[in-house]
């Protein structure tokens, strides 16, 4: 478990970090290191340089204003899971972050690292997708914003360019009548999601559904939204029957089969966990 040689940079600002990335095409961004360091130790990755953004102050905080929650890229899972602001404005994200790995992992791993790594079996991508998160990105060409639905391109591939860093995740705070839930079926070895279901529903005063989203980790190459199943719930009373009928015909495109679980079983888990997440979200709405 000895990585190849690499240079190490520890910039103190995002600007400086972006410049180093622009100057070093083989460099990788290091945040919490819980995905990158293991693959380097296995020599599955051998970046020429690491750009450690872990001590850039601007990436460390959680703030809430004007109905919007902003989380810096280097905020850890543990901070997210236990933040009163996140629990109030985006409880789905707190719930998902609290289910990642173990205590040690949650104290080191970061939201920015997680989303940029884009492991489809990790827990945050579906939550970010279901919450309609906006991802703020800085690069040598300036800053831009990418919606979560445009961010996850393919297996461990995102919309980030080589010289760009994810700096902040912005989520519109949950309004009245909104409930959410993250339900996970974990692989016994890795703890990653064989299937993770993230659901958000909103009901009006009469109890009928005015908005729903249902997204999955672990089922295909990226986190994926089951938009048809979710939209079919709008206008319903969110009864168990309505939820069951919404998910019963659901099929996730390009579901993955591997040595852990077949594609068909993952589809089955998606239906089961999807219904479970929707019911819990409804009960919390």
């Amino acid at each position: 478990m000895y990585p190849s040689k690499f240079d190490y940079h520890r910039p103190s600002s995002v600007q400086e970090a972006v410049q180093i990335l622009a100057d070093n095409p083989d460099a990788k961004v290091l945040a919490g290191g819980h995905s990158l360091i293991p693959v380097m130790k296995l020599r599955l990755a051998a970046p020429a340089a690491l750009v450690d953004i872990g001590r850039i102050d601007a990436l460390q905080s959680i703030s809430r204003s004007n109905g919007s929650l902003r989380i810096g890229a280097c905020v850890t899972y543990n901070e997210i899971a236990n933040s009163a602001d996140v629990q109030a404005a985006a409880p789905l994200l707190a719930e998902a972050a609290g289910q990642i790995g173990d205590r040690q992992v949650r104290y080191r791993g970061t939201i920015g690292g997680n989303l940029s790594h884009a492991d489809p079996a990790s827990d945050l991508p579906a939550a970010a997708l279901a919450l309609g998160a906006t991802l703020h990105v800085a690069g040598s060409g300036g800053s831009r914003s990418v919606s979560a639905s445009d961010f996850f391109v393919d297996l461990m591939m995102t919309a980030l360019q080589a010289d760009e860093i994810l700096t902040e995740v912005e989520i519109t705070a949950a309004g009245a009548g909104t409930g959410s839930a993250y339900v996970k079926f974990e692989h016994p070895a890795s703890g990653y999601a064989l299937c993770g279901a993230a659901a958000v529903v909103t009901r009006d005063a009469g109890g009928s559904c005015t908005g729903a989203s249902l997204c999955f980790n672990g089922v295909s190459a990226t986190a994926v939204s089951a938009a048809d199943a979710a939209s079919s719930l709008v206008g319903s009373d969110l009864s168990d029957g309505a939820i069951d009928s919404a998910v019963s015909g659901m099929s996730i495109p390009d579901a993955t089969g591997d040595m852990f679980a077949s594609a068909g079983y993952r589809q089955e888990l998606a239906r089961t966990l999807g219904a479970q997440a929707l019911r819990t979200a409804r009960d919390r709405a």
Binding site: L42, H187, P188, A189, S190, Y192, M259, F260
Partner: peptide, 10 residues
């Protein structure tokens, strides 16, 4: 195929 602790479930 089950060559790491990510794949082999103790």
């Amino acid at each position: 195929l089950s060559g790491t602790m990510l794949d082999y479930a103790v």
